[in-house]
Design a protein around this nucleic acid. Structure first.
Lengths: 213, 213
DNA sequence: CCATCTTTGTGCACGCGTTCACAAAGACAT
DNA sequence: ATGTCTTTGTGAACGCGTGCACAAAGATGG
């Protein structure tokens, strides 16, 4: 029976072994003292807890470049996601195959959601259409939305929204890049003030909490 | 002179006003007691600190659906980013206009980086090509990389890499979705163990630290 | 010029998460 | 069986960030 110790896993992941054990303990006691964790069993338990063992049908609304990229993205299937439908408002897109699947028109959004039991929707439309699409998705029964449009969506309680801003990551890189460049010329008064300390805990460690939208 | 108080800003952002004032104080003392912060001056100071006032030339390598989506993304310009070049390995792509800009061939990667003084690169290639592209970018002088390919890149010290996994966000939504569904049927032994407490601090608050790559 | 009122900037205390350290548990050898 | 050795699971301590509370600063009015 192949096993791993918390020490090995911690070293591989670059975290503290005690933290790892404590995290695992919240899922139950799946380890064997003196031996470690049964790899296969552990993987299954974590997968189950994260929802990887379930099949999540999702719809992607807005089949532009980004929507098409998402539809073609291979990582979804292995994570338990199944693209149930691609939806676009452009009648010219309807029926066209994208990622081996015909694009459907927005008119059929509600019936598609219902028939496939979709609870997760992905919005990759232009900013102007996002809120309207969001409202229709929610009305049709979607309770989780992944929003790639550069808009803040308002949704009723009980609906989760996650906003992905492709430029925020670049922003963070640029912030660090600026820090690198400023290091050799540090100390000039009134130009770049140092943050109180460098935690070094993670890539986000020294990014200010407040960023403009 | 239009001003805002830390109280107003905190209410708008949904954070504590003391935290906000303390954060601002790390950038310097830009407020006026009894009045608040001069909006225009504050915006400028924060923009400068975040690097928004600088012009960051970036190259996008891999002009598939995702690369094209990024090239067309409007949010970059307003954040101080300028797409200096689009690069692809496919000779058939060379010269084709994407987002009003001709795609250039990978052969010219090094000269493009050098001529434009690019220090930030975006990788949107297939997984198989990512590391090789990364190596060439780094060798050419790029010190920050935004990686959309589903690979972990290895880079020398001093180079920053941020990995964007489009499915991880879906993963998080699915995790919460599962929790929602499990709530009415909670308490069954051995199925879904509760995390010790619900912090409610943010959308990532109750996501386990360890997730499979 | 003094009094009052508003809001900043920050010392300090609290609370939470991380880490340490160790007892308990189980494997394995004798 | 008994002892030894490894590794888990977790109580307790530590450290850091968040929020409270207030003194200092400056505006504003009389």
């Amino acid at each position: 029976m192949p096993t791993v110790s918390s020490e090995e896993l911690a070293a591989a992941a670059g975290v503290n072994s005690a933290k790892l054990r404590k995290d695992f303990s919240y899922l139950g006691s799946y380890g064997t003292r003196g031996v470690g964790y049964d790899v296969e069993y552990l993987v299954y338990q974590i997968s189950r807890e994260l929802g990887l063992t379930q099949d999540w049908p999702v719809v992607i609304v807005g089949i532009g470049n980004l929507g098409a990229a998402l539809a073609n993205y291979g990582g979804f299937a292995s994570r338990g996601f199944r693209v149930a439908a691609l939806i676009d408002a452009d009648p010219a897109m309807a029926g066209k195959p994208v990622a081996g699947m015909p694009v459907q028109h927005t008119d059929d959004l509600e019936s598609i959601i219902e028939e496939n039991g979709v609870s997760i929707g992905v919005i990759a439309t232009p900013a102007g259409a996002a809120q309207q699409v969001c409202d229709r998705l929610v009305a049709a029964g979607v309770t989780s939305i992944l929003n790639f449009a550069p808009t803040v969506l308002s949704v009723p309680d009980g609906v989760d929204v996650r906003k992905v801003d492709l430029s925020i990551e670049l922003q963070i890189l640029a912030f660090h890049e600026q820090r690198k460049a400023g290091e050799e010329a540090a100390g000039e008064p009134g130009t770049v003030l140092q943050a109180p300390k460098e935690t070094g805990k993670g890539p986000d460690g020294d990014v200010p909490a407040v960023m403009p939208a």
